[in-house]
């Protein structure tokens, strides 16, 4: 270590750090409460977890429906194999763990037991992308890259509590398997200020703008909206397209915005490999558009441990870094 820092070093918070800004409006445990609500409507919904109920907001469901909650222990292969078996009996399981364990540890079980028979099992992954400071063991920076290659699987990367609340009943109602990049705890509430509703499989234009188009998913839509407001002060007019469903991808809506003279930037809480940027890029190439796209994403690297604000700043996900990058691209 070099000389003492001029400002106090931030400390890595508990496992699940909040990425809400100080004073930001938040909603507690939106997934857990949405699942309870959906379960009141659909008696076939059940909840499972692998020793992470409290950390994926599944505990809210467990308290409301103890007889419909199944603790599978710290055994992710069993978690997803059993979820498949339950779906085979007509139940609609929501199975939660951390994204790293779902994507890396239990892939074979998700693929062959759930996706191949196209069962309605809903995989709920906590700590997607860079939402914990615990380092690579917990940071699922490549989960979408892993999952995009899996046939039949729908992938949802929600922005905020509004997205999660509206997505859960739609995930339960859709026939095949889904993967939800869970935001848990006190989750920012952002999209209620826009004329917006979550529709599975649809991208939505949250605001128009003459100079720049942001195509974003997950919590980066929140940052994109903040950055757009900030850029307005620099007289830069930014449109924001939110694409919470990564697969199947709403190429029509996104290409409609991309195919202009505006600067296009994708923003995602995920490695630049195999996530939103490459999804948009492949759609652009298929359509024959010779369009440059700037990715704002995590680097293709194992990331540092530390405090989330520090890490988001370091890896370019902070609002300030987005603004600076956009201005630099505009020259």
């Amino acid at each position: 270590m070099t000389a003492a820092p001029t400002t106090p070093r931030l400390k890595t918070s508990a496992m699940i750090a909040s990425f809400a800004d100080p004073g930001q409006k938040t909603t507690p445990a939106p997934f857990g409460h949405a699942l309870v609500k959906a379960a009141r409507e659909n008696e076939n919904i059940v909840g499972l977890t692998a020793d992470l109920g409290k950390y994926t907001d599944m505990h809210v469901f467990a308290q409301a429906f103890p007889e419909r909650f199944f603790q599978m222990g710290m055994a992710e292969q069993l978690l997803f194999g059993a979820a498949a078996g339950m779906a085979e009996t007509g139940l609609v399981p929501f199975a939660s763990t951390y994204s790293v364990f779902a994507a890396r540890r239990a892939y074979d079980f998700l693929c062959l037991d759930i996706a191949e028979p196209n069962l309605n099992v809903n995989i709920v992954g906590g700590l997607p992308g860079l939402t914990t400071g615990y380092g690579p063991s917990h940071q699922a920076t490549e989960d979408m890259a892993i999952f995009r290659g899996m046939p039949n699987l729908t992938i949802v990367d929600p922005c905020d509590s509004v997205d999660i609340e509206q997505a859960v009943p739609q995930l339960a109602a859709s026939d095949g398997p889904t993967y939800l990049r869970l935001l848990r705890g006190n989750v920012p509430t952002v999209l209620d200020e826009y004329d917006y509703s979550f529709e599975l499989g649809k991208a939505k234009v949250l605001r128009g703008g003459a100079d720049v188009v942001f195509v974003s998913s997950g919590l980066m839509t929140m940052r994109a909206l903040d950055a757009a407001k900030e850029l307005a002060r620099h007289s830069v007019d930014v449109a924001v397209v939110h694409t919470p469903t990564i697969k199947p991808f709403d190429a029509a809506t996104v290409l409609g915005e991309v195919d202009t003279d505006r600067l296009v930037i994708t923003l995602e809480n995920h490695t630049e490999v195999g996530g939103l940027f490459e999804t948009v890029a492949s759609a652009v190439v298929r359509a024959g558009l010779g369009k440059r796209i700037v990715p704002i994403a995590l680097p293709d690297a194992f990331l540092d441990a530390g405090a989330l604000p520090t890490l988001h700043e370091r890896y370019g996900l902070s609002t300030a870094r987005i603004v600076a990058r956009t201005l630099a691209e505009l020259g």
């Binding site: 059993a82 078996g85 085979e88």
Partner: peptide, 20 residues
């Protein structure tokens, strides 16, 4: 075929059948 899967699915089926 991907070995070691059957019993995990069987556990879920047995749980599901009992639940129903």
């Amino acid at each position: 075929g991907s070995l070691g899967h059957g019993l995990t699915i069987a556990v879920g089926m047995a749980l599901g059948l009992r639940h129903r």
